[in-house]
Every structure is written in C-alpha cells, then in structure tokens.
Design a protein around this nucleic acid. Structure first.
Lengths: 172, 172
DNA sequence: CCATGCTCATTCGCTGGCGAACTATTCGTC
DNA sequence: GACGAATAGTTCGCCAGCGAATGAGCATGG
C-alpha cells in the first residue's frame, strides 16, 4: 500500500515491527495502521489546541468547558449537570471547573428563579472573547495539517470517516 | 458530500449548526468535519480499550505502561526514564506507575550491574500474559469498527491518513 | 585523585478529577 | 396537605500525575 510513496510514517514502522510478534492474536496491517494513525492525529490536534491555549492563557479544562458551553443548542447558557454530562466528567468535577471559570470572570452563576435547586451558568462577554481567540488559533493549526490533502481527497476522507462514525454512533 | 447517503452523523449536525456562527473566524466544512470525526473515533477507540481493561482487571495506566514496554525495540525491557519519555509523563509519575505494576507482579525492578544509578524494568510472565489478553479484546473491538469499510476503502483511508501523519511527523 | 557537574531515580507538596455522602428543593401520591 | 422518592448542586476524602527538590552514582578536567 506504500507502492507509490516510499516514505514511512511511525505507523508503518510499528506495523512492520509487530506483524510477526502477534502470536495467537489476530492482526491486520490495515486496521492497525488506521487505528494508530487516527490516534496520532488526534494527539496532534490536542497539541495544536494546547499551543493555542498557551497563547491565550486559558487552561485546558477552562477552554473545554467554555467551548462546550458555546457550541450547544442554547449557546452560552446551561446547567452544571448538563455540562458535566456532555463533558463526561462528574458533577463534583464540574463544580470545581465552574469555580475556576467564575473566579476568572469567564462565566457567572445565577440562581434559577422558577426552580431554586437549579443554577444557571452563563458565559460573560470576556468569556466569549477569549474563547473566540482560542478558537481562531486552534483552527489555524488544524487547517495546516488537513490542507496537505486536496479538496477532493478531503471529501473522500470525510466520507470514509463518516462511515465509521455512523457505525459507532449507531451502537449507543 | 452526503448526496448518496442521507444519514447524518454528529459531525454533520455540528457543522450545520455552526457554519453560520463562525463570525470573523475562518471556517471550512470539510476540515471541521474531519477533525471532529477523528476526535470522536479516537475517543471511541479509547472506550474500546477501557472496556477491554475492565474485562482483564488492568487499570488504564497499567496497560499503557505494559503496552509501551512490550512494543519497544527491546520488548519487555527498559529503563524508567526511557518509558517516561515515550509515554510523555514525568519521571515522578513513572515511579508511581512502576510501584503499582511491581506490587501487582506484572513487572519487576532490578538494579543495573554496570551503572548503579540505573534500574532495569522487566516484564514478568504474568505481565505478558495479561497484556496479551487485553490486546486481544482491544483488537476485536477495533476490528469491528474498521471493518465497516471494505478492504479497498481501508487502503484508501490508510493512505489519506498517512499523508497527514507524515506531514505532522515532518514538523518535529 | 578529587571536585564539580551531569544523569537517573525517588520523595514531597500541590492540583484536577472521581465517587460517595450531604443539603436543599421539588415532585408524586395517598 | 404531608411524607417519601427523586433531582440539583456542593463538600469531602482519595488518587494519579506534575514540577521542584533530593540523594545517589558516574564522568571529566585540573
């Protein structure tokens, strides 16, 4: 599968080294290479995000929380437990995050009027601003990698990935 | 790009929702969808791994350490700092991991004879056995997802991903 | 041959997150 | 309407990992 491109990436080397060591464990080159590459790309995108955050001075968990708060159906507005569920962290963890975000002025908590158990989390203007800035930097870094592919290749890749995500999402 | 497949995945919905909100931030459907899907697939593979670990009773960090120990150039044998570097954790964290692994009998530490600062980490028979078992379960889960693609599609996907990983690895 | 600097591993104090217990409020039902 | 069950959020004790400091051992130049 590398016939027209002699360069090897880490996944190629990994597969070559391990093809023969896979005694009594099912092993397929293609599958292994794909999984490894997806893992490495995901990691790279995490690094890109991290660099963007260092620029802006946001901490990782602060960005994640702000981001989710913004991209939900009701942008900039949610309850702590809804956020915790979406971020797949515990409610206890969420309380800690919101404490930090509130102290820095990115969000504010307001007691809900109609149900006094509830707390409304609202992003502030400053919160939106810093999130946008981080988004921008992050997007630039992502573009850089994905644009090594032509528009046509990108479409193909997106479609193939989608087949897999659909299958994953079906089983939930 | 969905002309022949009306089903939408999470990434499609995400892109559709946000296309118009991206004021003064550069935004491309393809790129965003690809990055999001890679992220979600990576997360799914993490879940698959997690399930495999629950089966075997290994903890996440125990498996990661064993795994790296096994897939390196000198399988089953390494120094703590080399492992720490490869796993991208601090030396302090490595000490903690090795403590746990040693207590459970998956590895053992032996003082190096020629340089007495050094410690040799060696995987035990029990360690290899449990790692293999986890590998097997994990591989099965990965296969399941990747095999929604035909052999030909897998080859195409692997090649497209490789273009990106090569570009990522070039800049290091 | 020893003094100074470097390397390897460990210990120590701190942080983010988890699960479980706790408080306050609302819902359901009798 | 009153009382048990359910729900929302927080507090508390614990754990894995980090950075900085420490200790122990090697290496090299004067």
């Amino acid at each position: 599968m590398t016939r027209d491109d002699p360069a090897e990436d880490w996944a190629d080397r990994h597969v070559a080294r391990w093809r023969d060591h896979w005694i009594d464990v099912h092993f397929e080159d293609d599958v292994e290479a794909i999984v490894v590459r997806i893992g490495r790309l995901a990691k790279h995108f995490r690094t890109v995000k991290q660099d963007a955050l260092i620029e802006t001075g946001l901490q990782d968990f602060e960005y994640d929380t702000l981001h989710l708060l913004m991209i939900r159906d009701t942008p900039g507005q949610a309850s702590p437990s809804a956020l915790a569920a979406d971020l797949e962290i515990s409610n206890a963890g969420m309380t800690g995050r919101l404490d930090a975000l509130e102290k820095n002025g990115w969000i504010q908590r307001r007691a809900s009027a109609d149900d006094r158990r509830r707390v409304d989390v609202e992003v502030t203007r400053a919160g939106v601003a810093i999130w946008r800035r981080a988004m921008q930097l992050r997007g630039a870094g992502e573009d850089e990698v994905v644009h090594v592919l032509s528009a046509e290749e990108r479409a193909t890749l997106a479609a193939l990935l989608k087949k897999m995500t659909l299958s994953v999402e079906a089983g939930e």
